[in-house]
């Protein structure tokens, strides 16, 4: 029984209580996924499971047997930076850096949701094939990722720059 984590086959832990987050942090020493609350309230532990963003603190590792998980360490495995990571630096989308990996993974997952046309609470046209990532859409869709340093403006600017610039420019008019 294995999970694919950042492209590597990893044995499912023998203790079924081990969360996906603790598997990453304590068993594999992949400390990039952060534990901010361990209650699904802050988003710092967000990783991608088969491309979808999930809260790894609320996921038992054994549930992910046979699935493919990407954490911040696997987002750009060859040592280069993902365009969104570049944009976070450019827009100062962080201060302490603790919520940052979760924000980045969450935004990557979020962009996929928008592309697939999944509506949010602020989407006007629920039937549209794709969602325009306006400033409000980005803020609503990223609200599950808390930041306490107050880097919100930089985070949203970085995400807009990477995934939604044309739409956001219109919304700002």
């Amino acid at each position: 029984m294995t999970i694919t984590i950042n492209g590597q086959q990893v044995a499912v832990p023998s203790d079924p209580r081990v969360s996906l987050l603790d598997l990453l942090r304590e068993h594999l020493h992949l400390g990039g996924s952060k534990k901010g609350c361990n209650q699904g309230a802050c988003g710092a532990c967000t990783v991608l499971a088969d491309g979808e963003r999930i809260l790894s603190c609320l996921a038992l590792a054994v549930q992910y047997e046979g699935r493919s998980v990407v954490s911040i360490e696997g987002l750009s495995p060859d040592g280069s930076l993902h365009p969104l990571q570049h944009a976070f630096i450019e827009h100062d989308g962080y201060q302490c850096g603790y919520c940052t990996p979760g924000q980045i993974c969450s935004a990557v997952g979020m962009a996929g949701e928008a592309k697939r046309g999944l509506p949010s609470a602020v989407t006007a046209d629920l039937a549209a094939d794709a969602v325009q990532l306006t400033h409000d859409e980005l803020r609503e869709r990223m609200s599950g990722n808390l930041c306490r340093c107050g880097a919100h403006n930089g985070i949203i600017a970085a995400i807009a720059d990477t995934f939604g610039r044309p739409a956001v420019a219109e919304a700002a008019e």
Binding site: H29, G31, S71, I89, G97, P101
Partner: peptide
Amino acid sequence: VPRIDGPRKVRGKAQFAAEVP
């Protein structure tokens, strides 16, 4: 000047106290 620790932070490579082996 961009933050010197920026690349580490966006990669999840900034090591915090609970991550020290």
